[in-house]
Structures are given as structure tokens and as C-alpha cells.
Design a protein around this nucleic acid. Structure first.
Lengths: 182, 182
DNA sequence: TGCGAAACGGAGAGTGTCTCCGTATAGTCG
DNA sequence: CGACTATACGGAGACACTCTCCGTTTCGCA
């Protein structure tokens, strides 16, 4: 890639991070281009769709996910605490932008989605928590990581679009935890 | 209301039903006006926002909700069956249009929402199921109807946006049921 | 039948998406 | 170093959608 292209790509990602943080997932892409100091054409050449841009933004986020699950797993304690801690972390992770929870959760399990690799990261992290719980024989039968992602993702979507307080989210996560634990 | 206004209002609601069914909640309102054979101004005079139009469409749906809960409640049987039947019915009811589950669930508990009365209908129906379960001492403590609506609504949102099969939804509902039942 | 209030409709302003193509420039080669 | 070409840029503009404004039409009462 030519040096100027590389530079503009970087600027666009930075600008998009800013704009999406401020205005949510639906922010205007022209605004992103303007903020980056490039033309709209340049934006669309680098990122043919909003999702592809989203995917690029989230590269850094992948590391956050992996760090987070690592931290959660070192914690010794009751399975229920472990699970709830992971659920709360999970909700935080996918709620970075308004509209994020729905976006990420709906892409879960969709091979064709541009953010499929991100979802896989999240699913893999959840799988590690599931593995730990299974070692402890704490999980009911037939519970899969992807199902837990969908359940918690559903709660996060609702919390996101209804502007729910964390205090209102916690009991919902507890219900899910009680539903998957023996 | 003048006769022509009444007539146009009816036409708009019919057209909106059609268009929303075909194209989901995000369909163009100009298309609705065109389909109804009226100008855009007429549409916006009757229904200042998409949500108000949605609300009008859903008048008929309220009856469906009440009929449905009635049917579910006459069924004798295990609490878990009753609850799961209601959950599946609930998902069906709010999944009439693409985007419906998210719309309805996010409006749940928001006083200012134009579809607040619809949400209340749904919450009241769920409350009746909760009451029945409490009579049977089948519910855990501190479980409220609105929480169940959010949980099931979350699942429905995910199922809607990820195009999940009913067979994939069922186990998610089972987790929630197991999480709220003693 | 005549009139005023009520309702209509569609042009157009505002906003966002995405494309096209003339222009500019990075990087290479003689 | 200067010329050349593939690569990239940028922004005007086509298209789509939302919503408003206001001149025109129609209803329904007296």
C-alpha cells in the first residue's frame, strides 16, 4: 500500500473511533471522512461499508476481550461468581458503542458478517469460561457457549436500547446464570 | 373528524400494515403514503412520527395479546410448560415485523414512548402468567414480570436480527425458564 | 348555495449514502 | 534527477429518505 493510503487509513480509523464513541454506531460516515480530513471517496475506497470500518476499529478491542477473560479466569471462587463476573464483563465489552450489542450479537454465528472474527474472539473467550465451569461440573447439560453469548447479548441489547442502569441489568444476568448452572 | 380524514387515516394504516410486513420496521414512509394514495403531508399530519403510526397499526395486535394469554392460561400442566408456552407465544407476538422485538422491548418501561400502551398490554399479560406461577409457588423470589419481558425480549431481538430458527430459540427460553423457576 | 374551517398534496429543504471521474502524487526506472 | 505510470485522492452530484410549508381543494353546516 502506498504511504499516503496507509496514512489516510489510519486517520480514518482514528476519526471513526471518535465519531462512533460520540454519536453511536449510526453516526454519519461523511462526518467521519470530514473529521479525518479526507474526501468521502477515500473513506469508501478503504472501507466499502460501515461494517468493514467497524471491524477495523475493533482490532484493538480484540486484545481487550482476551485480557478481560484472562483476568476473570484467575479469580478463584464459586462458579456462580465467576460466571456473573464474566457476564458483566461481557456486557461491558460489547456495549462500547450505542447499537453495539445488537450489532455484535446478531453477527454471532453469521459466517458472512464482516465482523465475524470479532465475534469468534468473544465466543472463544466465553468458551474458556464454559470449559472452566465444565471442569467443575457446574454447568447443566447441553449448554453451549454460543447460547450464552446470545442470552447475554440479548440482555445487553435491551439494556443498550432502553438505557438500563447496571443495577437493573444485574438481576437479568443472575437469571441467566441460574438457568445454566446446575 | 371529517369523513375524508377518517378515510385517509384508515387507508394509511392499511398501507402501513402492508409495507411494514413486506419491508420491516424501517420501510420508507413515503412508500406508505404512496401505497395509500395520499401525499406525504397527509401521512405526517395523521402520524407525526413512525412510532405513532406503528402504534396505530398495533391496535389490532393488542387483542391478539390478550387472546393469547387467555389461551395459555387455560392450559393445565406443569409450571415450566406453562411458562415456556407463554415465552414462545411472547416471542411470536413481538416478532410480527422485522425490528419489532427490539423496538417493543426497548420501549418497555419508557413512559414517554408512543407505544407505551402496547408494552403495558404485554407486561400485564406477562403479569398474569407470573401471578399464576406465584399461586403455585413455582417462582423464585424477586422475579418481576418486567424482567421476564426484558429477558425474553432480548432473546427475541437476537433471534430477529440473526434470523434464528425456532429450534435455536427454544433452548434459550428454557434457560430463562430454569432461571426464574424454583 | 355559499362560506369558512379542515384537510389535502407535493414541491423542496435538509441530511445521509455512495459513486464517478478528473486531478494529484508516490515510487520506480533509465 | 526527471519522466512516467499505477495508485490514490477528493468532492461534486445522483439518489434516497424524512419532514415541512403553504397554496389548493373539499367537506359539511347554515
Amino acid at each position: 500500500m502506498r504511504a499516503d493510503a496507509q496514512r489516510n487509513r489510519g486517520r480514518l480509523i482514528e476519526a471513526a473511533r471518535e465519531v462512533f464513541r460520540e454519536q453511536g454506531y449510526d453516526a454519519s460516515l461523511d462526518e467521519v471522512a470530514k473529521r479525518a480530513g479526507v474526501g468521502a471517496g477515500t473513506l469508501y475506497r478503504h472501507f466499502p461499508s460501515r461494517d468493514v470500518l467497524m471491524d477495523a476499529i475493533m482490532q484493538r478491542w480484540v486484545d481487550r476481550v482476551n485480557d478481560s477473560v484472562e483476568k476473570v479466569l484467575v479469580h478463584e471462587g464459586e462458579p456462580r461468581d465467576l460466571l456473573l463476573t464474566w457476564f458483566e464483563t461481557y456486557v461491558d465489552l460489547i456495549s462500547m458503542h450505542k447499537g453495539g450489542p445488537a450489532k455484535i450479537t446478531s453477527a454471532m454465528g453469521d459466517e458472512g458478517s464482516p465482523i465475524v472474527t470479532k465475534c469468534q474472539t468473544l465466543a472463544a473467550a466465553t468458551q474458556r469460561v464454559v470449559d472452566r465451569l465444565e471442569e467443575q461440573h457446574a454447568l447443566r447439560e447441553h449448554i453451549e457457549a454460543v447460547q450464552m453469548c446470545r442470552l447475554v447479548g440479548g440482555v445487553a441489547s435491551v439494556a443498550d436500547s432502553a438505557d438500563l442502569e447496571p443495577a437493573a441489568v444485574r438481576p437479568l444476568l443472575e437469571v441467566i446464570a441460574d438457568g445454566v448452572l446446575v
